[in-house]
Amino acid sequence: MTRPENEGFPEPELTAPARLVEDLRRLHDRTIPVPAATDAAVLGPARRVLGRRRTVHRVRWVAAAAAAMLLLALSLPAVLRRAERRPAPDRIAFRGDLDASGRIDILDAFVLARGLRAGAAAEEHWDVTGDGRVDAEDVHWIARRAVRLDQ
């Protein structure tokens, strides 16, 4: 087996005796006290620059949150309308797609949960588990299918 160029030095060859390390540090590891003026010359501009950046970040966050809220407020009526829809049974292509959207999603579970809570008359296709009852089990079945990764 060939070794990469220059990488063949065993670790022990790259270590140094403790006394040598100590003397290297004594020779080279010198420092000086840093005056308060130097600290201020670094930290003063940092506070100004970062303070401005923090304000910009906050404004961006508030704007993004406001946009999200606006989007939610605008789309909520449409979502609710879709949830209220009761399509004809013959339009439902497969089990669990209660709003006939062509896919099983969390809104189908929402449709059923709202129907159950409101005491609405159960429709035949709501019994997605096929156990002859329409209850929370059917809601859970749809919810599980809606969040499955392999669908």
Partner: peptide, 19 residues
């Protein structure tokens, strides 16, 4: 993200080594 105190902590942490 604009946290000046975090920058100050970094400065304090590395100042002596840098100088």
């Amino acid at each position: 993200g604009g946290d000046a105190e975090a920058f100050e902590q970094l400065y304090t942490r590395y100042r002596d080594w840098v100088v």
